[in-house]
């Protein structure tokens, strides 16, 4: 875990101040509409810190609160984190748990994807994971707080920024993941499986199942060297 890696991750993830800020703002406006107080909304975004889990539990909001169903929904929506965490163990297994376990509190899809890409280019550095996580968390929690502090309403550019910027950012990392022409079949499989799962099952499962199917095809390829 180096300071250079931390700085590199922090700078690389600065665009997420905008996209997560916009998404957090939209989430905050929704909480506000639901009648949730500012302290609770900010704490929600800080502790749960998951757009998928927050959106799902928000849709289940009722009186009395269905706590067990909400917990099950959180586990299902965030099961991809188990895979990401296991992959991070491969990268940072030598690091002391007292350094890694607090860092994992801020683990997000984008910070994991960025860290995986950076590890390919510069070698594994948990500082990068921590550095890239910070602008994302500030954007998300700050955006939620801003919804209560400023007289704002959701609009089209805001919604578009929240939806599209993370996808575009990950798309910019894609060239670094291209190994050779053998990447083509697994990637096509991932895309088609993700498309089918999002269309016919549930969009929140598309990344895990789509990526899993593509990885199984990758495993059928002979090993390099």
């Amino acid at each position: 875990m180096t300071a250079a890696g931390f700085r590199r991750g922090l700078v690389a993830a600065l665009p997420f101040l905008l996209s997560n800020g916009a998404a957090g703002l939209v989430m905050g406006l929704t909480y506000k509409g639901l009648g949730l107080g500012a302290e609770h909304a900010i704490l929600f975004s800080l502790l749960v810190y998951s757009a998928t889990a927050q959106a799902i539990t928000l849709s289940m909001w009722a009186h009395p609160l269905p706590v067990v169903a909400m917990v099950v929904a959180c586990i299902a929506a965030n099961s991809r984190y188990l895979l990401m965490g296991a992959h991070l163990r491969q990268l940072f297994g030598g690091l002391a748990p007292r350094k890694m376990l607090p860092t994992l509190f801020l683990l997000a899809d984008a910070s994991w994807l960025m860290t995986s890409s950076d590890a390919d280019r510069n070698g594994p550095d948990a500082g990068y994971l921590l550095g890239s996580s910070i602008p994302m968390a500030i954007g998300w929690v700050g955006g939620t707080a801003l919804a209560y502090a400023a007289p704002l309403a959701a609009n089209e550019p805001l919604g578009l920024a929240a939806t599209l910027l993370p996808t575009m950012f990950i798309a910019t990392l894609l060239p670094s993941q291209w190994k050779n022409v053998r990447s083509l079949w697994p990637w096509l499989t991932s895309a088609v499986a993700a498309l089918l799962v999002a269309r016919f099952v549930d969009p929140s499962w598309s990344m895990l199942i789509g990526g899993g199917c593509g990885t199984l095809v990758s495993m059928m390829e002979p090993k390099d060297g």
Binding site: L113, I170, G210
Partner: peptide, 11 residues
């Protein structure tokens, strides 16, 4: 990772 990138982008 690469396969999850693609699935994330498609979603």
């Amino acid at each position: 990772p690469g396969n999850l990138f693609i699935a994330f982008i498609v979603g």
